[in-house]
Amino acid sequence: MSENHHFLVQQVGQGDKQALAALYRAYERPVYKFIVSRLNDPHEAADILHEVFMDIWRVAASFEGRSQVRTWIFGIAYRKVIDAHRKRARVTVTDEVPETGDVAEAADAGFAAKQEAEHLRFCMGTLSDDHRSAVSLAFYEDMTCAEIAQIAGVPEGTIKSRLHHAKKLLLHCLSGRIQGRVVA
């Protein structure tokens, strides 16, 4: 699969539109899901997805194959969303791990049994973009720590730290919502 996608990118670099279409069909859904998880705006996410594939069309000739195609494409999407945030001058929502609340209590609070997708969406929305990106790539895409670090352009330790904090924030938020508490 990976070699096939490398070949597709090479073909795109030579101006092959059918190869671009094949690449689009292979990556459209996961990349769109990643983008929309960070923006919460399906329309803007569709525009950014479009920009990602236009960039692929423009720069495929310079792809040297030193990374996986998936990592390369998600890396483009990662930075496109950062640019979108910049243009909006969006303020980071949450970065501090609350002192109150017990993670073990949160984990036991019944979330596992309740399948609270709505709560999960809400709580994901309270995370900063760095945290949300790490969670999305780890759990939507089941990527390794090394892959996520390559996409975000940071050391693996930074990704582990982001996921650790994101986990605490998510469980705290979920616990608060499920138990009817107000969570800051």
Binding site: Y24, K33, A46, F53, A107, D108, A112, L120, V135, Y140
Partner: peptide
Amino acid sequence: AERDALATIRREMQAEEVNAPGEFGLARLM
């Protein structure tokens, strides 16, 4: 407990359906 909670979060996230642009998006791209 944290592992179980994270596993549930992962299942929820992967089960979430999104309406990607699909063929309309591809037509726009082309």
